[in-house]
Design a protein around this nucleic acid. Sequence first.
RNA 1: GCCGCGGUGGCGGAACUGGUAUACGCGCACGACUCAAAAUCGUGUGGGGAAACCCAUGCGGGUUCGAUUCCCGCCCGCGGCACCA
Length: 796
Amino acid sequence: MYKHKNIDKKWQDRWEKAEVFKADDDSSKEKFFALVEFPFPSGAGLHVGHPRSYTALDVITRKRRMEGMNVLYPMGWDAFGLPTENYAIKTGRAPADVTADNIATFKTQLKSLGLGFDWSREINTSDPKYYRWTQWQFLQFFKAGMAYKTEKAINWCVDCKIGLANEEVVNDACERCHGTVEKRNKEQWMIAITKYADRLIDDLKGLDYLDKIKKQQVDWIGRSEGAEVEFEVEGHGSLTIFTTRPDTLFGATYMVLAPEHELINQITTEDRREAVEEYVKEAVAKTEIERGDAEKEKTGVFTGAYAVNPVNNKHIPIWVADYVLMSYGTGAIMAVPAHDARDFAFASKFELPIIEVVRGEGELPRSSDGFAMNSGEFDELCTSECAIKMIKWLEESGKGRVKTNYKLRDWVFSRQRYWGEPIPLIHCEGLCSPETGGWVAVPDADLPVVLPVVEKYEPTDDGESPLAVIEEWVNTKCPQCAGPGKRETDTMPNWAGSSWYFMRYADPYNDEAFADPDKLKYWMPVDWYNGGMEHTTLHLLYSRFWNKFLFDQGLVPFSEPYKKRTSHGLVLAEDGSKMSKSKGNVVNPDDIVKEFGADTLRVYELFMGPFSEPVPWSTNGVVGVRRFLEKVQKISELTADEELETVARALHQTIRKVSVDIENMRFNTAISQMMIFVNLVQKSGKITKESLITFLTLLAPFAPHLANELAENVGHASLLEVNTWPDFNAELAAEKEVNVAVQVNGKLRGTITVPADADQKTVVTSARALENVVKYIEGEPKKVIYVPGRLVNFVI
RNA sequence: GCCGCGGUGGCGGAACUGGUAUACGCGCACGACUCAAAAUCGUGUGGGGAAACCCAUGCGGGUUCGAUUCCCGCCCGCGGCACCA
């Protein structure tokens, strides 16, 4: 039994004193910037899931340091956010105070794990010295015309009383509180992320992200290439639609407008008006989920109006149906029921004509590619060629054009809440800046716009931020004309501060700029970023976009912030369900550290399963890891002047496996190899001091406290953190003898042990001589398969 | 519905590029130590069979001397998207 409590503390103090984790801004060494998502300092404290990601990159950075690199592995606090504000509302305490308390708890907890963060670079997004630069960067968006205020039907969370971005709405419910979300018209600040849609997709190509991360981002942005086509509506001008299948234009037998489409009112004939108005009213009242269910039966109503199909001048009826969304494309479609399942369902129900225009196999509706038919001069062209020719024809005749659409929407950047960065804009009552709707930027010298102290943190029922009621704060002067002005009372979403936090680590105390350009140039981009899959279409996408914008402004020297992005699996409860406070199945890391020590928790977090997969927690597994560490302690007492050859060999095999596995985040198999080594030493009874130190160096990234303690016990004077990562020697690792499987017709009939360098003839001969082989083979085998060092297979 | 990932002992999981399936850990059984227990150490542990051997990597086929690995068709689980024209 080793005394983890004393050992943990002792080495944590030594590291701090020696400043081993401090990153050096002027170093000739190669830099390595490792990043984990900084936590939101919630009142619940550290979750047992946090250390999985932190320990993983701690292992990697500790190895990098031993490999001679200048490592930056920082930590900070994503401190703005609703939970703190809600807590403040409940208790009446100021959010800043609550945050400070929570941070203190988190920090103590993280430190107790021996994580090698450079605490001298700690940042906090709710610190005015930090959010001054968040505000400043927002103003760059504003000044570049990338931020605009507009009345929008936004997702409104009834419980939180805030507008949500699409990304924050999950199954029609608020991502945070799971409360009802409804549509509301509200003036909101928006940021034009859609302008970067193409680059956010295309630039993924050069990045070392997990494939599933790239794919999720691409799907989320949802780029589709097609064409816009103009259809004449008799007596009402033209109606524009978007289609990805311009090749099927001859198959368009009717048109559909979304219920919100502005043309409906104009084109509806008098005899149809009542029915149309009633349908529109019902459709608009439905929730997104009700409307979004693709399984439900199609509904719709005929407007009485007809459009002209530009390719064949046929008159086709215009319908209104809620399966067409106003928010995508032009809010209107041409329906090609033969080749679209939705149009087919609709046409079948309302008995509209179905014309097949793409020849192919199988029943209609059929959306696969093929050859055009019933399409006049386009007949017999293959789908892709037909599309190209059709677009060309449309362009030449002025009836349409190439068009790309995206599912991605602009970023809703306003929150009507207190605990966030104030948006640093002033509305000039004299409207001295009409081109921005009267909005004027707060001058740089007046930043930060500090959150004023308020008494009540509740948002108001009319949807205004609590800041709106503080008149002395709201009423100010227009910085441009000095006339009366009013401050923007909305605050930023909590994604704002985290969109650029990694840059601040390069230069956390700078008051002249968000970071010194030289330091950015040295440290950025992040070399390895690990975080949760849940942020793929939120933080990860936003921060890539934010970075690209700053790059375009010449403010940062790199267009992508993260070179490599990996992801960890969730830590689940023992029964495989999610850990949650309400279920009472949350494991507190403090308890594990207290009972078993920091090293046990660290090693267990990485041993429990494949890093990127979700794995259930197992207290028995924790005990197993602790036993392993105790065995390590035992073998450290077995130092001798000599050791068995097998130990030396196993050591080098372990160096190889641990080195490779760390790079691939296969920590579980790295640890299992170390267990194999320790078992072997225990059995053999002796190990040289040199080999022991080498092994402890390999173990040090995983279990740094114990590894240092044991190294010191055998007289190793320096910290293992400054050791050199051991070199692997292939010669020493090579087995002298190998086991070769002997098969007859692919079935295992025995094994033989032969010298590793034995030639084929020798191996086959002794395999052939096996009693169990002789038994099966009469005469000569038909064929002999020989895989060196692996097997011999006699085919008869 | 579409896309992606996965399915291996009682459990978490290993397995290079197609080459001895079940490494490592947990659990369990037995043994040693002990008055006893815990801890520790040792031995065993996929299933069937006395054994030879046979059967096992979700199911059914295929390719191959040989398939957890490759191909085809299903089933189940997880994650993402979800009437995006």
